[in-house]
């Protein structure tokens, strides 16, 4: 198992000594205090920890939404910290899909148009966008709801739209920050089943942030954050 970490091919995601500091001087607070994580292609990772432990910050850095204050983050061998805002946007566009806790759908915009959004920035033509977005919605079990606006959908359905939006570009990595945070247990388990299927069937690398053990159990690997540091990093079945 350990040998897997030292794979000859460079890992998809490699964080080394990553810190994140907010504020300066005495007001400086450390969100991350030097973490080392490697995530390979096709892994399903759950990042756990209490609130303020730095798990969301870590996810934002992995998703190229944020940059480390120090340390190195290599994504596919590229040092993300040295990229410009626009270069990071291009990485997100190309390789990442995001699912947020609050769904973050465009209000007063149909489910189909919400899912189309990332494709617009990829320069996909309108008819092709419609087709891909329709397929993505079908993949999350929302066929027939294309014209509904978020307000007309339940929380679970909204989160499925958000997942469809993250999937529509066929990303290498799907990042989900508390994807089940606003849902009841039954809906949560549905969403987790959906994510598991995506990981298994499409080989999409998935990193979810959660504080619920029940959800984390779906992952192959659980990384535990405490106070900005990695407390444990264990594969399924291993003892933490």
């Amino acid at each position: 198992m350990v040998a897997d970490h030292e794979h000859s091919e460079p890992p998809l995601i490699r964080l080394e000594g990553v810190t994140k500091v907010y504020g300066t001087g005495e007001a400086a607070t450390y969100a991350l205090r030097g973490i080392d994580i490697r995530i390979g292609q096709g892994e399903f990772v759950a990042v756990m920890g209490s609130s303020g432990s730095g798990k969301s910050t870590c996810l934002n850095i992995v998703g190229c939404l944020d940059t480390p204050s120090s340390g190195s983050y290599l994504f596919r061998g590229t040092e993300v910290g040295k990229l410009t805002r626009n270069q990071r946007a291009l990485l997100r566009r190309q390789y990442f899909g995001f699912v947020f806790q609050g769904y973050n759908l465009l209000s007063r915009t149909s489910a189909l148009e919400n899912v189309e959004l990332p494709l617009i920035y990829r320069g996909v033509v309108r008819s092709k966008r419609r087709e891909l977005a329709g397929k993505a919605l079908a993949a999350v079990g929302l066929q027939g709801r294309e014209t509904h606006s978020p307000a007309e959908l339940s929380g679970g359905q909204q989160q499925r739209v958000a997942i469809a939006r993250a999937l529509v570009t066929e990303p290498d990595v799907l990042l989900a920050d508390e994807p089940t945070g606003n849902l009841d247990t039954a809906r949560s388990l549905e969403i987790m089943d959906l994510l598991t299927a995506l990981n298994r069937d499409r080989g999409i690398t998935i990193v979810i942030v959660t504080h619920e053990n029940e959800m984390a159990r779906y992952a192959d690997r659980i990384i535990n954050f405490v106070d900005g540091e990695v407390e444990s990093d264990a594969r399924h079945g291993e003892v933490a």
Partner: peptide, 11 residues
């Protein structure tokens, strides 16, 4: 924020 997150450029 959503647009930027899904990869919209500043421009």
């Amino acid at each position: 924020g959503i647009r930027l997150a899904v990869g919209a450029l500043e421009r």
